[in-house]
Simulated assay, not measured.
Amino acid sequence: MDTYAVHAEGLRKRYGGKDALAGFDLAVRRGTVQGLLGPNGAGKTTAVRILATLLRLDGGRATVAGLDVAKEPRAVRRRIGLAGQYAAVDQVLTGRQNLEMFGRLFHLDGRRARQRAAELLARFDLVDAADQGVEGYSGGMRRRLDLAASMILAPDVLFLDEPTTGLDPRGRGEVWDSVRALVADGTTVLLTTQYLDEADKLASQITVIDRGRAIADDTPDGLKSAVGGDRIEVVVGEAADIPRAWQVVAGVCREAPETDHGERRVHGLVHDRVAALTEAARRLRDEGVAVEDIGLRRPSLDDVFLRLTGHRTAEEKAGAAV
C-alpha cells in the first residue's frame, strides 16, 4: 500500500436513489500524475470530493497519503491540496496578499506565511506580478496563483478538478508546466479533465470512469493500443477515384478499409506502418489516382474515450458546433 498515494476500493455514493459512484476503484502511484477521465455525470467530481473529505462515502474504503478518509478526515486534510474548476482567489487582493491570507488561514504565523508566499510566487513564476491586483491577472496567471494557494502546506497529494477549464492555449500550457514542476518535486497529482490532450501530455496512468465505475485503467499508450493499431488514411481529389483508392488501401490493410464519402477519405488498419504507406503511395501513383493527402495516424485518447464510453468529449462537441 505504500506504493500508492491514493487507493480506493468499491466507493459508493448515492443521491436521491441514483448512484453517482457504484463501486469505484482507483490506485494512484506516489509521485505521478493520474488522469481521471469520463463524460459529464460519470462521477469524477464526486470521487474527488470523497477523496478530499468534502463528501462522506456511502460504501467502500479509501486512503489518501496512507490515511483513511472516513476515519481520519482531519489528518487527510493536512496532507492534501485541492484546486477546483475555477480559481478561488480574491481579485481585490494582490497575488502576494492572497497567498499570505491563505497561509494565515492554514494557521501559519505571520513570518512563516510571508516566507511561504514568497517561495510559492517564485515557484509559479509570479514574482513580477506579486504586488499587482489579481483582477489584472490573465486566466493562466490566476490558475497558477490558485495552484500556489493549494500548495501552502506542501501537500503530499494534490487534487486538480478540471483545472484548465476556459483557459486559452497559452494559459493551459502555463498550468501544465506548473503541474510538471510539482510532480518533479514529489507531489502526487490526481487530475480530472475532459481535455484528452491534457491527460495525454501530463498523465502517466489514466483511469476512465463511466456511470460511477472504472471501466479502464492503463497508460495512455496502453489505452490507445487497446482500441487498435496504426491506420493509413488516403484523401483523394475526386469522388470518382474513391473505388480505386479503396482497392489500393485494401491491399495494404489487415482488414477491409472504411470509406468516408463526404471527405473523400479511405482508411484502414495496417501492420507494418512504413511499408504500408510506401506501397500504397506507389500503387496510387501507378493507378493515376490524384491524392490530396496520405498519411499514417495512431489512435488518440479521443478514440479511446469514444470506444469505451460511447460519448464524444466536451472538446470534440465544441469543435463540431463551430
Score class of each variant (00 low, 15 high):
K201G: 01
D161S: 06
A181W: 01
A226V: 13
L191G: 13
G171S: 12
K224T: 02
L167N: 10
K201F: 02
T207H: 02
E174I: 00
E174Y: 00
D200E: 14
R180T: 05
G212H: 09
K224L: 03
Q194A: 09
T164D: 09
I209N: 11
L182I: 05
T165G: 04
D218V: 12
V227T: 04
V179W: 12
G166M: 11
A181N: 10
G166L: 09
D218M: 10
V189I: 11
V208D: 03
T165W: 12
D210E: 15
Q205N: 13
T207Q: 00
V227H: 07
I206F: 15
I209D: 07
G166V: 11
A216C: 09
L182V: 03
T187Q: 04
T164C: 12
L190W: 03
G229L: 10
R172G: 13
I209H: 13
V175A: 12
D210T: 13
T219V: 11
A216M: 10
L196E: 01
G166Q: 07
G212A: 04
S178W: 13
A226S: 15
T219K: 13
T187P: 00
P169D: 11
P163H: 08
G229R: 09
D168M: 03
Y195R: 09
T187V: 15
L196Q: 02
E174T: 00
D230P: 08
T188S: 02
L223K: 05
G173M: 02
V179F: 09
A214P: 00
G186I: 14
G212P: 06
G171D: 12
D168G: 08
L202Y: 07
E162H: 15
D217H: 14
G229I: 07
A214H: 05
G229H: 12
G222Q: 10
V183I: 06
S178L: 06
T207W: 04
G229C: 11
E198S: 09
P163A: 03
T188P: 01
G171A: 13
P220Y: 04
G166H: 07
A181V: 02
L191W: 11
D218A: 14
L223C: 06
D230Y: 01
T164A: 13
L191N: 12
Y195Q: 05
V179N: 03
Q205D: 15
T188H: 02
L167F: 10
R213M: 11
P169I: 04
Y195I: 05
L202R: 06
D161K: 07
I209P: 01
R172K: 15
K201V: 14
D230I: 12
A203S: 15
D161H: 07
E162A: 12
L196S: 03
A203P: 10
S204F: 06
S204W: 03
V227L: 02
G166P: 06
G166Y: 08
T164K: 10
R180S: 07
E174H: 04
W176P: 00
L223W: 08
P163E: 03
G228S: 09
A181F: 01
